[in-house]
C-alpha cells in the first residue's frame, strides 16, 4: 500500500464529539496509515489549529459548543487551503450547499460507510498534493487505460460495456481499498438517492465483470467483502 505509506506523515484533525464515532474512525484511519488527532469541541479545535495546521480536517457540524462551520470559516478566513470534509447527520440539500459554500471540499451524510470516508480522505490528500491521476491504472496483470477506455489482462484485450468499464475503473482507482455499494450507486450509477436499492444491479454487473476478467483464470481480482462491499486487489484481503 504505497498510498498509505506516503501519507503516513500527514496528520488528520478529526473534530467529532461522539466518542463512539471518533473511536472507530481513529482506529480505522490509523490502520490505513494516517496520524489522527481528535478534538470533541469547537474550543479544542481552535486551540489545536493555533498550534499546528493539519493536512486534512474531518469536521462534524453538530458540536456541543457550537456549529462546526465556525472552524471551517476560520480556516478559510486565514486563507488556509487545508482540505475539509464535513460529516453531518443533517443531509438536506440546503445544508449541503451551505457547507460547500463555506469552502468545504467534501460532504458526507451520516450514516456513512467507513470505506467511503477513507476513499474521500485519500482523494482529498491526493488533490492536495496536486498529484495528477494516472491515465493507465495497473493492478497485477490487469491494465486499465482510462483515456482509451481499454482493458487488458495478461496482454489479452477484454471487451466491456460502458458501465462495466466505469465500474472497473472505479474499483481500480481505489485498488487495495474496499468500495461500498453506496459509493458505487452514487459515483458509477450517478443515483443520488439512497432510497432506491441498486444492490441487485451492482451484483449483476459485478458477476459479469468477474466472468470477463477472471474467466479461465483461478486468480481472483474482485473480492466481495460481506457487509462492506468490494475490493479490487491481487491478493485476497
Amino acid at each position: 500500500m504505497s498510498d498509505a505509506s506516503t501519507t503516513a506523515r500527514s496528520g488528520i484533525l478529526l473534530v467529532e464529539d461522539d466518542p463512539r464515532v471518533s473511536g472507530s474512525l481513529v482506529r480505522g484511519l490509523g490502520e490505513a496509515g494516517y496520524v489522527v488527532s481528535v478534538t470533541a469541541t469547537l474550543g479544542e479545535a481552535h486551540a489545536q489549529l493555533d498550534s499546528q495546521t493539519p493536512a486534512l480536517v474531518i469536521l462534524d457540524l453538530g458540536l456541543p459548543d457550537g456549529d462546526g462551520v465556525q472552524v471551517l470559516r476560520r480556516l478559510r478566513q486565514e486563507g488556509a487551503r487545508v482540505p475539509v470534509i464535513i460529516l453531518t447527520a443533517r443531509d438536506s440539500v440546503v445544508q449541503r450547499v451551505a457547507g460547500l459554500d463555506e469552502g468545504a471540499d467534501d460532504y458526507l451524510a451520516k450514516p456513512f460507510s467507513f470505506p467511503e470516508l477513507l476513499a474521500r480522505v485519500r482523494a482529498r490528500l491526493r488533490t492536495a498534493r496536486q498529484e495528477a491521476e494516472a491515465f493507465v491504472l495497473q493492478v497485477g496483470d490487469l491494465e486499465i487505460d482510462r483515456l482509451a477506455r481499454r482493458v487488458r489482462r495478461g496482454g489479452r484485450g477484454i471487451e466491456l460495456t460502458a458501465r462495466e468499464f466505469d465500474l472497473l475503473a472505479y474499483l481500480a482507482a481505489n485498488a487495495g481499498f474496499p468500495v461500498s455499494r453506496d459509493m458505487l450507486t452514487r459515483d458509477v450509477w450517478h443515483v443520488s438517492s439512497r432510497a432506491t436499492s441498486m444492490d441487485k444491479i451492482i451484483d449483476v454487473h459485478m458477476s459479469h465483470l468477474r466472468e470477463k476478467l477472471e474467466g479461465g483464470s483461478d486468480r481472483r481480482l474482485i473480492h466481495t467483502l460481506r457487509g462492506i462491499g468490494f475490493m479490487l486487489s491481487e491478493t485476497a484481503p
Binding site: R163, W189, V191, K200, I201, V204, H205, S207, H208
Partner: peptide
C-alpha cells in the same frame, strides 16, 4: 440502468 438486471 435496469436492462442488465432484466437480461440476467
Amino acid at each position: 440502468v435496469y436492462a442488465p438486471l432484466c437480461e440476467d
